[in-house]
Every structure is written in C-alpha cells, then in structure tokens.
Design a binder for these strands. Structure first.
Lengths: 201, 201, 201, 201
DNA sequence: TGGTAATCGAGACGGTACGTCTGGTCTTAGG
DNA sequence: CCTAAGACCAGACGTACCGTCTCGATTACCA
C-alpha cells in the first residue's frame, strides 16, 4: 500500500498495462474513500493523488463505479468459513466477522459507497447483485449444512434466511452504527438460531 | 399532486412563503426522483420543472438533501398500526405494508435516495438517524406489546429485534429486489416470531 | 446629508410621497456611489442602506439610471459664471472649477458613473445629452461673449470650441487622472485662447 | 471572422490551447459587443454563441474585462502614421482617422465599452491607462516632430497637447455623436495648430 | 368621523448571470 | 501503444441582483 514517491513520473513501459500505475490508482482510490468517503471520491481526485492522467484511469475502468468495485474486491479479505458445528455458532461468527470487517473504514466505507452508488447507477447495481449472489449462495451453504444436521425447519428458504442475517449488518453499516453491542448481536443470533430450529414450532 | 398549468407564473403573494411554490417544488422534486432516481435529481432540474427560480428553492431548502428529506416526509403515509393480537401477525402486516409501500417508486426510490445520500452527507445521515429513532421506537412498542402477552423472551432487545426485521426490507430495497415472494416473507416472519418466543428455548 | 437614525422606520405619511424617504434614498445612493463607485451601486444596496423598500424606489425612479441622474442633479453646485473679461481668463476659471468640482469623489464619481451607464443605456444617454446641450450652450455663450470682444476668429464654431475644452476634463476624469498639473492646464488654456484668437492667423 | 459551423464540436487538441476555440470566443465576443453593446455582453452569452464551455473562457481570460480588452486589441488596426509635414495636417489626419475608425461599431462600441467598464473596474482602468500611455507617447512624438520644425511653442507640454486633441474624439464617442461635421473638425484642428504655433504669441 | 386611497417597509417571486467545480472525452508529446 | 498532462464541452453548484408583486400598517384626504 506504499504510494509512489512524490515527483516521480511513471512513464509508459511499452504497449501494455503498467502495473505500477494500476497499483497507484487503486491505492489512491482506497485512500480517498477511507479518508473522505464517497463524496470526495472523483476520478479527478484519484488521478491527482495517483499522479496519473484521467484517460489512464478511464482506459482501464470504464467509470467511477468500476473503480469502486475494484477497490472493494482488492481489499476483501477471505472471511474464514465459520464451521463451528452449530447454526448458532456459525451465525455468530459470520456476523461478528462481518461487523468487524466493516468496522475498519478501509472496508466499511468502500462497501457503503458501492451500495450508495448502486442506487443511482445500473452498472453498480448489476455488479452489486452479482457479488451478492455469490455471498448469498455461500450463506445458504452454511444454512444447508445446518439443515443437514437437523437444525433448520423444512419450510424455511435458506437464501432468504441468509439474506436476512446479513441485512442486519447492512442496516448497521448504512446508518453509521456499525459498532454493535454484544447484547444486540446476541438478540439477533439467538432469535435466528431458535427461530430456524424445527423444535421451536 | 396536480402541477401548475404551463405558462402560468407564480408571483409573490407578499412578504411570506408562497405555498403554491412550495407545492410545485416538492411535486417536481418527487416526480424527478420517481422518474430518474437520485442521479437526475439536481436543484436546477427541480427549478426547471417547477418553473421556479433557483433562489426560491435555496431560500427554503439549504441544500439538495434537505429537499430530498422533505419530499420523503411529505409522501410518508401513515402505516396503520398492525395490532393483530399476535407478534407473528403484527410482523407480517408490518413487513408486508412496508414492502408494498416501497414497491411504489414514488416512495421506494425516494427512500433509497435518502439512504444513498446519507452515505456521503452528514446532514442526511443525521436526519435519517433521527427518523429511524422514531421508527425503531415504534417497532419496539409493537414488540413490547407482544412481550406483555408473553410472546417474547426476556433476554431479547426489543429495539434490536425491530431493527432486524426492518433491515430485511432495507436489504431488498437497496438491492433493487423489493418485490419479495410470499415464501421469502414467510421465512422471515416465521423465524422471527418463533425465534422470539420463550417456548423456543 | 444627515442620514436617518438606525432602527427608525419611516412609515407612510398618507397618499403622497414621503420626502424623508426620498432624501434617505438619495443620500444612500450618493454615499454608495462615492464609496464604492458604480460597481457597488445597485437598487438593492440603496434600498438596504436607506432602509427603504425596493418598490418605494421603483415607484419614483423607473430605473437605476434615473436615480443616478437625480443624485448628480442634486449635488450639482452652481459654478459661478467666470466673467473675467478675457477668453483665456474665462477658460482657465471654467476648467479649473470643473476639475476641482470633479476632484471631489461625491461629484466626480457620480458623473463618471453616468457616462459609463450611458454607454449601455439609451435613457441614460438621452439624459446625458440633454444635460450636455445645456452645458454646451452655456460654454458657447462664454465664447460668443469673447467673440463680441474680438477674441475669436470668425470661422470657428463656438459650440465645438466649448465642447473641445470640456472634453479635456472628461478625458482626465474618465482615465482616473482628474488631478491635473498647472502646466497641463496652462498648455490647454494657452493653446485654446491663442488658437481661437484672430491675430494668430 | 467565419464562425464555426453549428453542431460542430471543438474537441481538445491535446494539452495546449486550442486556437480554434480562442478565435471562436473572440469572434463571438466581438459580434455580441457590436450588436448589443456592453449590456448584452456576458460570459454566458459569449460561451453560448461560441459553443464553448464557460470554464474554457475563464481558463484564458480571468474576467469579462480581460476578454473585452482582448477583443479591442485584436481589432485595433494600425493607423498609418500621419506624416504630412505640418502639425495641422498631421492633426487633421489623425483626428479624421480616429473618428472614422470609431465610426465602425465593431471598433467604437468596443472602445466605449472598455471606457465604461474602466469606471467601475480597477483592472480595466489599469489596462486602459497602460494602453493610453502608449497612445499618448505616440501623439507626443508627432507633436515633437512639429516642435523640431518650429511649429510648437516652447512652453507647451506635448503630452497634454496630444491628450487634449484625442479627448475631443473621446467626447464625441462617449456622447454617441461620433459623426462629426467637417466644420467642427476644422474648428478643432485650426485652433489646435494655431494655438500651438509660436508666432501666435 | 369614518372610509378610501395611496404610501411605506418588507420580502418573496421567476429569472439571468456570475465564477467555480467536476465529469467524461480527446489529443498531444514522449518513452 | 501506453503514459502523464491538460484542454475541451457540458452543465450543476450556490450567490447576487434584477424588476415585479403582494402584503399589512400607516396616514391624509374627502364624504
């Protein structure tokens, strides 16, 4: 994440993409997002900070949204698969990990920005939905694993269940209340696990 | 919601606010939002459509966000209090009503825009949080009513529970999937009610 | 030139013009012109300073130019008729008086403003020309008096001669060099008197 | 002076000033001034007519005044040096040329506008004075040439003399009476030459 | 003496232009 | 053929005045 020394000029390295430029641009974009949020995030600002030309950015990313998504994808760590053996444990670990991850502005701010952007930009929305399809499938997998263990009622939709769980984190993120008390988390987790359980009927 | 006839000019009505202008501006703003979303929503566009001068808008709304919030407040219908006698019934009615309400672009698009705006604008965020405080208190009230009937476990936080329920609707709204199948709704409602119930322990 | 005490409100005095308002407006206009020149001279500024309503101004002066001319007319002192007995003496006294008069910003700035205004406003130009007709006739009178004394060649146009003399003062005024050295004045006066004299041929 | 075909868009020609844009802007500015005078001369109007963006204008001209001056400088023809061999002949030719030049609205209107602008804008005044310093030096040169021939009295200031001559043209221009009768011109010229002559003492 | 009429201040109205900012496109010069 | 640079058109931003309008209040005049 080191940025280029000031004053240096990255010349072309021939008829191919210069990885130093790509890195400088993504670094600059991430830094701007983390520091100033979406409002300060403009192609001009990124170009200035990365000491890159605007066309260089537009050559590789068709628009602001694409750059935004790239920044998020690059920073997305691999959340370890929470295989604790129980639905409640898996849910707790998943939610805690997610809230922790977003609690770092470098991650939370970027994702908030993508969601905001998607509200007025069809490309961003499409990209966001594609990303979510993956995530929801992943969550449904966790739930189906629990279902195989007999922890989930037959009439419940795994995808909807997973979506609902993650939507709590969304809500906290989008209302600038990402720091969540253990009691709140436990309320959600307990209700989630108990509500999904067959015996609870 | 009738707009002014074209060609008519709204003159001043003295040293006080002209309600016709206020209405025309809010109408225009709502129409622009519903039609083009947040990206087409500019003070200039509203002024043009409302046949109003820009300073007239700036006189009464300090910025785009304030106008946005006003549009939403004006369109906010009174969702009837879903007092069905059971937590599950209340939750179902509340969620169904909310999804229905947002399914009308005139409502859903406006609220999405406010959420998006709040991600990069502190004023919008503050206004959004103030609004949510009200809504969460209202939802907590419904849950506490159920709690008095013995339908809610003692260790669950009413506010967090309510927030989690509404967050499902947020997630659908913000991912452009506001149309929700009955099965998905039922998954959420059933899990919610069963998970909150004391007997489920 | 005393201005109204701050805080006082000049109410209507019935169905006729309130002289206090007229005075306050002209005072304010003169003060604004003298202080900030034409660029700060707006109807709004005058109304603010005079604590008058804009329509009160527009009721009595159709436009900015009319107010400007009124300010000048009010401040126009009576330059004493320079009857020294010789053309050279009369011209010297006239030119000196005029330059002195305009050297006071309260007078010079106002007249400069009128000339400037007249370059883009036909009303102002018409008013200026009407005023100049008077002045040129007055100057031609002085020259004809000299002509009767045998001091002016027969083939010279009195009006053109007078206009030329005054145009020197205009040029100094309009180039912000109203302070003129005695040598410059003498150059003009001597050339004027000698050039007009019959014996000079 | 051909203007760009309508509908054509002048793109950038790289990281340097596009002369086509400069020309289009100056053409538009000159045309607007000649047609509507200073009152219709706004940066917006110029941008519209030149099919240029406002920032493109502001990039190269800091304000309205700078553009105004540029328009005048561009249109300023080279008045041939009136070396007739006598002061009277030189003065006649100079004055006639100047009045003729300003009689064309494309020239006279622009110069009037600059003078008007200078009355309320220090930058314009400074630019005007700098321009006049040149012109006055030029005129003083003509007079000094005559002085060397013995046509000018020793006690007269060449600069003041030249300024006075040109001020007559200013006065006609600024009072919208640029068309001057031969008799008027002759009155000025004859008085000027005779008044400057040593024998007239 | 009471009603009418024109005045006053105040300030909102629809507009136009200001000068600034950013967006996304385009072309160059140089490696 | 990529890179940095930066000009290009476009158009929104928020502000200042323009000249018009309506208001509620204040007074003088006339019935």
């Amino acid at each position: 994440m080191m940025e280029q020394p000031v004053g240096a000029r990255r010349a072309s390295i021939g008829a191919r993409r210069n990885p130093a430029s790509e890195k400088a641009i993504l670094d600059a974009a991430a830094a701007i997002l983390a520091e100033g949020g979406l409002s300060g995030f403009s192609i001009e600002a990124v170009a200035r900070r990365a000491r890159a030309g605007k066309p260089t950015i537009y050559r590789w990313w068709p628009n602001r949204t694409a750059l935004l998504l790239d920044v998020y994808h690059r920073s997305k760590h691999v959340i370890p698969d929470p295989d604790t053996g129980t639905l409640e444990g898996d849910a707790r670990m998943f939610l805690t990990n997610l809230l922790d991850f977003w609690n770092d502005p470098a991650n939370g701010t970027v994702f908030r920005s993508i969601i905001a952007e998607a509200q007025s930009n069809a490309d961003a929305m499409a990209a966001l939905q594609a990303y979510l399809d993956d995530r929801h499938a992943y969550l449904a997998g966790i739930i189906d694993r629990a279902r195989a263990r007999g922890e989930v009622r037959a009439d419940l939709d795994s995808t909807a269940l997973g979506e609902w769980l993650v939507s709590f984190a969304w809500h906290r993120l989008l209302t600038d209340r990402i720091e969540t008390s253990p009691a709140e988390i436990e309320t959600v987790i307990k209700t989630f696990a108990a509500g999904a359980a067959p015996t609870s009927k």
